[in-house]
Design a binder for these strands. Sequence first.
DNA 1: TTAGCAGTGTGATTGTGTTCACAGCACGCC
DNA 2: GGCGTGCTGTGAACACAATCACACTGCTAA
Lengths: 215, 215
Amino acid sequence: MPDRVEPLPNRMVERLVAYRRHLRQCLGEGRTQIYSHELARLERVTPAQVRRDLMTIGYTGSPATGYGVEGLIEHLAGLLDTRSIGGFALVGAGHLGRAILDYLARQHPEYQVAAFDINPEKTGRITHGYRCYMIDELERVLAECPMRVGVIAVPAEAAQDTAIRLIAAGVSGLLNFAPVRLHVPDSVFVEDADIALLLEKVAFFARAGRSEEKV
Amino acid sequence: MPDRVEPLPNRMVERLVAYRRHLRQCLGEGRTQIYSHELARLERVTPAQVRRDLMTIGYTGSPATGYGVEGLIEHLAGLLDTRSIGGFALVGAGHLGRAILDYLARQHPEYQVAAFDINPEKTGRITHGYRCYMIDELERVLAECPMRVGVIAVPAEAAQDTAIRLIAAGVSGLLNFAPVRLHVPDSVFVEDADIALLLEKVAFFARAGRSEEKV
DNA sequence: TTAGCAGTGTGATTGTGTTCACAGCACGCC
DNA sequence: GGCGTGCTGTGAACACAATCACACTGCTAA
């Protein structure tokens, strides 16, 4: 019973998602129990961190057998529940957009996804099992079938406008791949995945050859 | 004169890269001076943070006119210098790989880039001005032309092996798009860009409609 | 049955990154 | 020329997240 906990820290949510991914794999391999240090090694965090996380979300294990794989997955499902999201609205069906559809199709076939593009050649077709609409239809499609998450995979110049349109159409979370900072209402969650920026960052740390792999 | 400062914090490097991007744009618009609060608004951080960052890297402005755009760009170039990197070795020329080449060609035409793929159909051709080699040639190409940064855009199953090969070939920084955690020596910097994970994270925060846009 | 052991649960601590608050300064204006 | 204004530079305070350290628990085996 997920007791609707108070705001989970940003980083912790990432770890929980990662835990779940590995737990599912363990389940597939027939494992029923797992220890904190095993989960920790897989995710490059400390066992103490894992225990703290699981404590925070209120899942408890046993010293003798560790944590129950299946029970933990269900507990996480209660927290990370994504059924209420409606689905993902992806704008921009270029290379990046199609790569994202790849991920969605492969890892989350259960989600509803609609793709949009400005280029008529790309629209109307089915990509990875998802329908690609003309961008003009964005408002209509989202009115018929509400989606809480928007993914911005358009050129930098179009990113801000796209964000506004998505928000107006009811989206409350954005994953932004464009190399610009979006200006949106505080009520909207924005995660930036700025590839060009990451490339430069890695380049910086690669020079020194330092060991800084956080997270 | 970059005084080879001690390890810069991970997050701060991201901000510095972002600052530089905006400064270049300002320069293009003919601005010569900029205030901390202007830079801050563009990047969604506080003015105090900007001043602190610039202080840390040892760049100093004037109360009357703010910071000199051109001087700051040059100062940042000294810190973020990427000439010594050799270039980027991109493994995986699928949709994602080509999207990354897009970014590189558009934002960093000055970098040297080599792409690799296992599929003979994709190799030998020129994409976005970059040569795409057969994966077997990785060691040979990097021996001839050392590159410090590796970008992993291959399926999850192949990611770990790819990482090992890149490191053996002299790479000391990795940008990993595969949805797995890599196990690498401590001397190698790894940045994970786990798109599937980010999608789930945004989905989580979109549900609550919370305002959590960190960074 | 009891000692040993391996792992969990958690208060306390440390460490790190961000924000506050204010002294100091340079220009513009009266 | 002196005064006000608005910005920078920075020590201090704060907030948060990760880590440590250890009491507690349940199994195992002699």
